[in-house]
Computed example of a mutant assay.
Amino acid sequence: MKHFVFANAFVNFLVFPQFSAILKRTLLDYRNKLKSSHISLISKVIHEAEYIVSHYTHLNSFYDWSDLEYRFSKLLYNDEFLVHNIGKFNRNRLQIWVLSNEYMNDFIEEMDEGTLPKEKYAQLVESMPHYFVNLGDSDRCVSRIAFNYEPLDFSTTQPCLADAHCKHRLTSTPSVAYSLSHRMLNIYLRLKVRNCYITSSEEDDMKLIDKLCAFMYREAVYIARRGFFARDLFLEHITLCSLLGYEEFYRQNWFNKALSWMNEYDCIKEFRNFDMNRTRLEQGGYKKRARNEYLKLRCQIFYSTCDAHPSALLMSVLSHAVRHAVHFMQLS
């Protein structure tokens, strides 16, 4: 039961140190551009995020290293390396992969052309176990990162501890949707939080991560062109790849669109039609009694005020928007 909660919530908890780190980096780099009122507001948000992370790590302190969530909380405890390793803004670094004839999956060409039906993409989302990295794989591999020693300093890199299972999962194709973003998340946390590499520092950074984010960008463009029907995935792709400073993901209209999804409760509900498609797809694998229970659960989700995962991701997306805006803001 505990692992079920972990599998559905760990990315939500990761968002808090992530958007806190983005805002900390903003203050470090651009404090002289900001008014005192802005600094005070950003500092308050950072403090609240740190409080949540502290509470989360405390709840897991009663477990030991055999527990996945305990190990994950250890990654959140110190964000110094995450703050330092947020990428500088860069342009066209992804171009070689965006224009590449190498395909991450059999449907990327249809995505590029905008002809892939939404229903088909929904099927791909639910086919995550067939694309090397499912949620269980991702959770286990993220939790194993904590076994790597913390780096001595920012310039120190080291090989990640040998892990044949995770290495195979994280470096193999094909990938699509969440399997794509969770591969990116795993490699990023290793390289930028523990300063360790799976293949080599240059290979992980300049090839694996660049390639994954290029295809995540192509998916984000597809989702946007088809009416932003998969909001959660769209936000997840922007959240993760913007950490590397890829300016392809910093689009003002995308930030404005994401902000428009915030309701009067300051959170997001996923687009229901997409969830309805997913409901029909998912329930097919359940026996009748389990299917009825599943439908009851889905109804509760549909009629709830907020969806936790996209709401958490929105915070990171907006923090990226703040950093990017301040970066190009002229001193008065």
Rank of each mutant, 00 (worst) to 15 (best):
P151N: 02
R169E: 08
M128H: 01
E126M: 14
V125C: 05
R140T: 08
K120E: 14
R169V: 15
A122R: 07
C141H: 05
K167H: 12
E150N: 13
A146K: 03
A162E: 13
C166D: 02
A146Q: 09
G136I: 13
R140Q: 10
P159F: 10
N148I: 03
Y131T: 06
H165A: 08
A122H: 02
D163H: 10
A122I: 14
F154Y: 13
H168Q: 11
R140Y: 05
S127H: 01
K120G: 02
F132W: 06
Y149N: 11
V142K: 00
P151D: 01
D139C: 13
E126D: 10
D163T: 06
L152C: 09
F147K: 10
L135D: 06
Q158A: 10
G136D: 13
D163E: 10
A162H: 07
S138T: 02
A162F: 15
F147G: 00
A162R: 10
Y149A: 14
K120D: 11
K120C: 04
C160S: 10
H165Q: 09
R144P: 00
A146M: 06
Y121V: 05
V133S: 01
I145F: 02
R140K: 12
S127M: 04
S138R: 12
T157P: 00
D139K: 06
K120T: 15
A162I: 15
E150T: 08
V125P: 00
H165L: 09
D137M: 12
K120A: 11
E119H: 01
S138L: 11
H168N: 12
F147I: 11
V142E: 05
H165K: 09
F154I: 14
D163A: 06
Y131D: 04
F147H: 06
T156D: 12
H168D: 11
D153T: 11
D137R: 05
F132D: 02
A122F: 04
A164I: 13
E150I: 09
N134V: 05
R140W: 02
V133Q: 05
A162N: 07
D163F: 15
S143I: 08
C160W: 09
M128T: 09
P129D: 02
V125A: 02
A146D: 12
N148G: 01
D163P: 01
L124T: 04
V125G: 00
C160I: 06
K167Y: 12
Q123T: 10
E126F: 05
P129C: 01
L152E: 15
H165N: 04
R169Y: 02
G136F: 15
M128F: 00
F147A: 03
L135T: 04
E126I: 11
E150G: 02
D139Y: 05
S155R: 13
P159D: 02
T157V: 07
H130V: 01
N148K: 07
L124Q: 04
A164N: 06
T157I: 05
F132R: 12
L135Q: 08
M128N: 03
F132I: 09
L152K: 15
V142Q: 07
K120W: 02
Y121P: 07
C141Y: 09
Y131A: 03
V133I: 15
D137N: 14
F147Y: 11
K167S: 12
C166K: 04
V142C: 04
Q123V: 03
S127Y: 00
T157W: 11
A164D: 12
H168P: 00
K167I: 07
Y121E: 04
I145V: 13
A164T: 09
H130L: 11
N148R: 07
